[in-house]
Design a binder for these strands. Structure first.
Length: 305
DNA sequence: AAGACGAAAGTGGTTGA
DNA sequence: TCAACAACTTTCGTCTT
């Protein structure tokens, strides 16, 4: 995915773009249009201002990353003392390559686990790409996966399963809303298996994953349904009151957030149907109705229509 | 005709004996 | 290991706009 750098909004021409790394989106400040929901930066982390710099810097290879099994060192080393054009290397270059090769050899502990890790990390990358996840989530997931490997917990589990669980856990830690279902689908496994693996990781890694903050759902829904900022803040208020009244504990956060969004959309006259919201929230209309009934009752919300 | 509403039965996961 | 349980879903009939 080598897209050129977008500097202006194609919709209104506004140059003030907001990079929302939390949601992994590129948003125009002028018209609010979400230009791209992929904020991956696949290029190197440096800029070259002239040819000489480019010449020097291209030799560093791809940026260092946790998502390649040996953190990106693998591709640049082979056993010929020749460059890409087949020419012999100069002595100083030769010395460099020797050093690199030494470390490269050392970093390859065992063939089997390394191959396994390499495959798994490419799997992680694929899944993250499908889900439009920002880079930091992918990196987090990679770190999680490495931890799993180090603790020798993969035995008896599919790579896909553990990869999906790692991604899901990373999403939760980075506060990026993706349902278990979405992650599982992207990894081509069932929701059930994804859940099993996730719980397994949760138990074995003893990582504290905070429960999902329902407020982050709201912004997701508002975005999806193209509602106004006013609606969003009202939904937030409703949600805040609901949390104070402990209406949120024990319930699926998505349902509550969806109901709050629904009510807000009614209050601001930006009516959306229950079905529309339900679809985006991955809950049914019935659940929204139940939460909606609860919220209007307990919070004494007047809906004059 | 579409959306909202609610009852009833079913599902998958958690909990506690 | 099993049954009870809560949350949520599916389905379907009825009412409202």
């Amino acid at each position: 995915m080598k897209s050129e750098k977008i500097t202006k909004c194609p919709e209104c021409g506004n140059a003030d773009l907001i990079r929302d790394y939390e949601a992994g989106e590129l948003v125009c400040e002028g018209c609010g249009m979400v230009i791209s929901s992929t904020l991956f930066d696949h290029g190197p982390e440096w800029r070259a201002f002239d040819e000489e710099q480019r010449e020097k810097r291209t030799r560093v290879g791809a940026p260092l990353t946790w998502t390649i099994h040996d953190k990106g060192l693998s591709t640049i080393i082979d056993w010929h003392d020749r460059d890409v054009y087949g020419r012999k290397l100069k002595p100083d270059q030769k010395a460099r390559v020797y050093r690199l090769r030494k470390w490269h050899r050392r970093s390859k502990v065992s063939g089997a686990t390394e191959r396994n890790l390499a495959f798994a990390l490419s799997e992680l990358t694929k899944v993250a790409y499908k889900l439009n996840l920002p880079k930091n989530v992918l990196e987090t997931a990679s770190v999680i996966y490495r931890k799993v490997v180090r603790k020798r917990l993969i035995r008896g589990r599919s790579i896909q399963g553990v990869a999906a669980a790692s991604i899901y856990m990373a999403c939760r830690q980075c506060n990026i809303i993706r349902t278990l279902e979405e992650v599982a689908a992207a990894a081509h496994i069932s929701k059930k298996e994804g859940g099993r693996n996730y719980r397994f990781l949760l138990r074995k890694l003893e990582t504290r994953v905070p429960p999902v903050d329902p407020t982050s759902y709201i912004s997701k829904f508002v975005n999806q349904l193209t509602l106004s900022g006013e609606t969003e803040s009202i939904a937030m208020q409703i949600l805040g009151q609901a949390m104070e009244l402990r209406l949120t504990s024990g319930r699926g956060p998505a349902g509550i957030a969806a109901a709050a969004t629904y009510i807000a959309s009614l209050l601001t006259d930006e009516r959306r149907t229950q079905g529309e919201i339900a679809k985006g929230a991955h809950v049914t209309e019935v659940t929204i109705r139940n939460r909606y009934k609860e919220l209007t009752q307990k919070l004494n919300i007047e809906l004059d229509m």
